[in-house]
Amino acid sequence: MSCQCECGTCKSPQFELIDRIVETHKDEQGALIPVLHAAQEALGYLPEDVQAYIAEKLNVPLSEVYGVVSFYSLFSIVPKGKYKISVCLGTACYVKGAGEVMAEFEKQLGVKVGQTTEDGHFTLEGCRCLGCCGLAPVLVVNDNIHGRLTTNDVSDIINKYKEIKQ
């Protein structure tokens, strides 16, 4: 795999990172998914060259790697925003008005579900049940869960994570 940074000589750090990830999982049966999880955790997403590199390292066809990446909704082949706002669209949350909360986010962020704001700060996503149905409707921003939402909370949440930007 050729160099991806622009120096033209070195092995890009991202591939060295993957070398290390593959090393820790190489003796596991069915290592592909754990490796993809670790790679996405480290890089934020799984671009094609990374998939190709993983395929080569694990000695599986690229088609199989891509097949797996595209099958599971948590794997992404496009970069995500710094803050991932994931509104739960599970049943409990839906019954309690998660749809309206989602619509309000779309309106205020000016993006649709699955899209990232132009400044790369927020990605808006839907997810299926965070297991906090007792607090429905619920959303998670990266790892922080916010519960008992109403549409009035939307701007506060956006502002809270906007401020972290500076």
Partner: peptide, 26 residues
């Protein structure tokens, strides 16, 4: 050992779950 899912509901079905542990599409 622990294996993590990756966001596919169908993987709760037992044969799909096994495929997923094997590192395949669920």
């Amino acid at each position: 050992d622990i294996r993590l899912g990756a966001g596919a509901f169908v993987c709760g079905e037992e044969t799909a779950l096994l495929a997923s542990i094997e590192g395949k599409r669920g």
